[in-house]
Write a protein that binds this DNA or RNA. Sequence first.
DNA 1: TCTTAATATGAACAAGTGTTCAAATGAACG
DNA 2: CGTTCATTTGAACACTTGTTCATATTAAGA
Lengths: 120, 120
Amino acid sequence: MSKQDPYDVCQERMVHPESLEQVLREMPGYRVLGDLADLFKALSDRTRVHILFALSKAELCVCDLTEILNMSSSAVSHQLRVLRASKLVTFRREGKNVFYRLADAHVQKLFEQAMEHVRE
Amino acid sequence: MSKQDPYDVCQERMVHPESLEQVLREMPGYRVLGDLADLFKALSDRTRVHILFALSKAELCVCDLTEILNMSSSAVSHQLRVLRASKLVTFRREGKNVFYRLADAHVQKLFEQAMEHVRE
DNA sequence: TCTTAATATGAACAAGTGTTCAAATGAACG
DNA sequence: CGTTCATTTGAACACTTGTTCATATTAAGA
């Protein structure tokens, strides 16, 4: 009988048809899933994680970050660009310096959850 | 005088020396930062976000996922491998089927925080 | 044991990413 | 203005990543 069913690509799916419907009904759209992946992608590099951790402690200029990270200002700037694009950081100019800080508190909570997962 | 200072690569750093020290003192180690980045990297793909969202609603076998995602079982399996490696999902075998589910509740909370950031 | 279904794995390739180097802004100051 | 310093940007390159295709596994039935 499962042979006649239009959903018979996989036998096992027949075991939870109601589950599948619920999953599909409550699934965010393609766009939202992509936005989420892009957010995580911005967080998926050690250098950027390092930068965000530093900024979670204090507002810092690029040259402060170059010393903390021990990297070229060019490399740091490229990564800050990524973080800016994901709205994870904001900045203000003060003379020749540009000071960066976390955009909002969500980022910090995100890190706390991630930390809890890493510890185990 | 800042010219004689050993920390004079950047003038501005002198403005918050105490901040810098605090940042460096409270910074997690290289290993932890890498682990965090790796965790986010596992979440940084739309297909994997899609899978995790589905699994957050119900325990599902690979063939269920192939239909939800409309992808080949090979592609799905490759991504599940990544999620397994990051301990984001666990699985149990039942006959010919392998059922996957979220490894713990942290993942769900992580997504909630991420969702809040995406909405703005 | 032979077949079939579900899942996993390996190789290969295109597409994407992070760093470096060189060059370009932008702002202060003589 | 011209110089200097902090930061940004663009091009180039090595390296990584996600998919596809073909080939294993693994389990259930005949």
